[in-house]
């Protein structure tokens, strides 16, 4: 997964955010070169990121990035130091259900951002912030019986067979699989806060 990390700060919290991402196997591209774990070739655009993380109290410098990311359906985590108010410019998002689903704000104490990052990554995998971008092609063969069932179900529910199967996998398999949820949670958890 590739994440764009935008910040104007260089402190314990931002270092911790970058370390948390790296320890989760996330590739980082950042406006601050020292946080990037991938180079920034000419064709590396926002379109190629799976999510955006913004840190800092200067909402004015991030509004454009939030708008650009949400317009491409990229989930956004906005991390703010505790004590700051929710940026006025972004309050509009709270009233827009469609955009709010992709936008998460977390207020953190200095140097205590790790939990927010892991929560976000977990949500990307399992929760509302997951992307609905269907891009992986997977071919498998069906028996006539399975095909008959899918045809019948597709007509009955007025959706495509592929959509019905995807929904079934998410709602009836993944969301009910506690072993999988534990696996994702443990995979994203650090040994200790800030220790990556």
């Amino acid at each position: 997964m590739k994440v764009y990390f935008f910040t104007n700060e260089y402190d314990e919290t931002t270092k911790q955010i970058a370390a948390s991402l790296r320890s989760s196997g996330i590739l980082i591209l950042s406006n601050q070169e020292h946080f990037s774990s991938i180079s920034h070739p000419a064709d590396m655009s926002l379109e190629k990121m799976q999510a955006v993380i913004i840190y800092g109290a200067e909402a004015a410098s991030a509004g454009y990035l939030v708008a650009a990311a949400l317009s491409q359906k990229k989930p956004v985590l906005y991390v703010l130091p505790k004590g700051n108010l929710f940026p006025e410019e972004l309050k509009f998002l709270q009233g827009n259900r469609q955009l709010a689903q992709l936008f998460l704000v977390k207020f953190v104490q200095p140097g205590k951002a790790t939990e927010a990052i892991y929560d976000f990554l977990e949500l990307l995998e399992t929760g509302e912030l997951r992307q609905e971008n269907v891009s992986i092609k997977f071919t498998f063969r069906l028996s006539p019986r399975l095909e008959r069932y899918l045809n019948w179900r597709s007509v009955k529910e007025k959706i495509s067979k592929a959509d019905w199967l995807r929904n079934f996998l998410i709602e009836e398999v993944i969301e009910k699989d506690e072993a999988w949820k534990n696996y994702i949670k443990n995979k994203n958890k650090p040994d200790q806060e800030g220790n990556s």
Binding site: G63, V66, A67, A68, F92, L99
Partner: peptide
């Protein structure tokens, strides 16, 4: 169509 404009 483009609600994100309101952020800018």
């Amino acid at each position: 169509a483009i609600p994100e404009i309101s952020l800018l």
